[in-house]
Simulated scan of single mutants.
Amino acid sequence: MAKTESGERPRPPLSGEPLALDLVNTTFIQGGLRGSLVDALAVPADLDLWLEEHAQALPPEPARPAAGPATASHLEEFRRLREALRELSRACVAEEPYGEQPVAVVNRAARLAVSWPEIGDGAAGGTAAGAADGPVVRWAESDPLMVLLGAVAVSGVELLAGPGRHGVRACAAPGCILYFVKSHRRREWCTPACGNRVRVARHHRQRRS
C-alpha cells in the first residue's frame, strides 16, 4: 500500500485499463462479498498519486510540475467525472441509452483537453533554428491538472462512444464493482483474484450439496 497524507491506503486492484475505466475503478470493494467500499481518491494527495501512476498514459504536460499539488477543487472535479463515467459504463454494459447528465459532465470535461501546435518563440525573427525541436503544444486550459482531467474524459468518449464500448464489462464476481475491457474471449473477471474467489465459493457450495 502507498503512503499518502491520509496514511497507508490500499491501491485499486485493477489498473492498465483505458484511463476512463482506471478512474472509475478508484472505488472498489476490499474484502470480497462482505467487504467494505474503498475510495482511492479520498484526499488531494491521492489524486496526485493516481496521476503519477498514470503519467505514461497522460499527455506530457510540461507545466504540471510547476502547478503544485492537487487541490480539493481538483479532487472534486475528478470525482465528478468518475461518477459520470461509472454511470455511463453501467449503461454501456446494460445496453441502455446514456443519460443526458453524465454525458454533459464528460463532454464538458473533454473540452479541457483542447490543444494545438505552434512554432516556438525561438523561431521568431526569420530563422528556422528555433524550430529544430519541433512544434510547441499549447493548451486552451491554463490549469495543467484540468488538462489532465480533460484527457481522462477524452479516454471515456473514445471508449464509450467508439467500437471499444462492445468490450466493456462489469466484473461478474459477486461484490465486485470494477469495470474492464474484455481482452480475450474467456475473460469474465476483472482480476484473477476475483476469478479464484468465485471458484472457491463454487467449490464450497458443491461440497455442501
Rank of each mutant, 00 (worst) to 15 (best):
A140H: 03
A67G: 15
R90Q: 13
R169G: 03
R9A: 12
A132Q: 12
R90W: 11
L88D: 04
L33R: 15
R34G: 14
E61A: 09
S209D: 11
A55M: 10
A91Q: 15
Q30N: 10
P135E: 12
G130W: 05
Y179K: 11
G120I: 04
A151Y: 05
A172V: 15
N107R: 12
Q206P: 04
V136I: 13
W116A: 05
L159D: 00
R186F: 09
P144R: 09
R86S: 12
V198K: 08
P192F: 01
S155V: 01
G32C: 06
G125T: 08
V200C: 08
R186K: 14
A94I: 03
E95V: 11
Y98G: 14
V114T: 12
V137H: 06
E95D: 12
R79Q: 12
H204I: 09
L160R: 13
A94M: 06
A170R: 14
H166W: 04
P102I: 07
S142W: 03
T127M: 08
P60D: 13
L21C: 03
G164P: 03
R202K: 13
E52Y: 04
G31Q: 12
R79W: 04
T127P: 05
E61I: 00
L88N: 00
M146E: 10
E8C: 07
N107P: 07
V43W: 01
P13H: 09
A63G: 08
P60I: 05
G68E: 00
L37T: 09
D48I: 00
R80L: 04
G7F: 11
